[in-house]
Amino acid sequence: MSDSPTAALLGIFEHYQPQRLLSVSSAPIPAAVAFCAQHADCTHFETNEVPLPAGYANQRYDLAVVADQLERLDKHQGMELLAGMRNLLVSRMAVLVDMQRTPAWEQNDFFGLAFQRQGHFKRDGQTLTLFTYDLASYKTVPDWLNSKYWANPELFGKYWW
């Protein structure tokens, strides 16, 4: 994908062009700040509080980024944060995590939450992994879900029982 997490996030932002961007991080995320500075129609919401403050938890966002949070939370709190955001607040999300600093987390935990691994970045002794979630493409349409496999293909899409 790219050689740095900032470049990877900027690529994601450019692809989706979010107008409402939520950052959940202990420090400002440079890619989010840069993107919103260059795009006047982008409103950037930032917080470092987990659980999310009521003002942030009651809104919808086009995209959310979580960085430097899962390393500070226990696994249960992290799962609640990611699943809650995915289910209630956003349709697209990116998570940057240092898997070495979060021994309780495994890649399969992210896969179980429907995230896909998008990148792996090593720099200054730190290794970050980028996981993304997009509601529109997280699951491929099964091959059997078409009229070819129906008992009466001519009735496909005609009747709903």
Rank of each mutant, 00 (worst) to 15 (best):
100 Q>I: 11
150 W>I: 03
146 N>K: 12
54 A>G: 00
92 R>M: 03
131 F>W: 10
33 V>A: 09
109 D>E: 08
66 V>C: 08
70 L>T: 04
45 F>I: 10
106 E>A: 04
134 D>F: 02
14 E>D: 15
41 D>I: 11
91 S>D: 13
95 V>N: 00
98 D>P: 00
98 D>L: 03
89 L>N: 02
109 D>K: 07
17 Q>L: 13
8 A>W: 00
61 Y>S: 03
21 L>D: 04
119 G>E: 11
68 D>N: 06
67 A>F: 08
51 P>S: 08
59 Q>G: 01
128 L>E: 15
112 G>W: 06
139 K>H: 00
39 H>F: 09
86 R>V: 09
64 A>G: 12
74 D>N: 15
150 W>Q: 14
149 Y>K: 06
34 A>C: 04
90 V>W: 04
40 A>C: 10
23 S>E: 15
133 Y>K: 06
120 H>Y: 15
101 R>L: 14
131 F>C: 06
126 Q>S: 14
144 W>E: 13
103 P>R: 13
23 S>T: 15
21 L>V: 09
72 R>D: 11
13 F>D: 06
25 S>T: 01
105 W>M: 05
14 E>M: 09
86 R>L: 07
158 K>T: 11
45 F>A: 11
114 A>Y: 13
160 W>S: 11
129 T>A: 14
112 G>R: 06
37 A>E: 15
135 L>G: 04
115 F>T: 03
82 L>Y: 05
67 A>P: 02
62 D>Q: 07
89 L>H: 02
26 S>K: 05
45 F>W: 09
78 G>D: 07
160 W>L: 13
23 S>K: 06
92 R>I: 03
19 Q>Y: 08
65 V>C: 06
100 Q>T: 13
111 F>G: 01
15 H>R: 15
142 P>Q: 09
89 L>I: 04
29 I>S: 00
75 K>Q: 15
145 L>F: 07
107 Q>M: 02
19 Q>C: 13
88 L>Y: 08
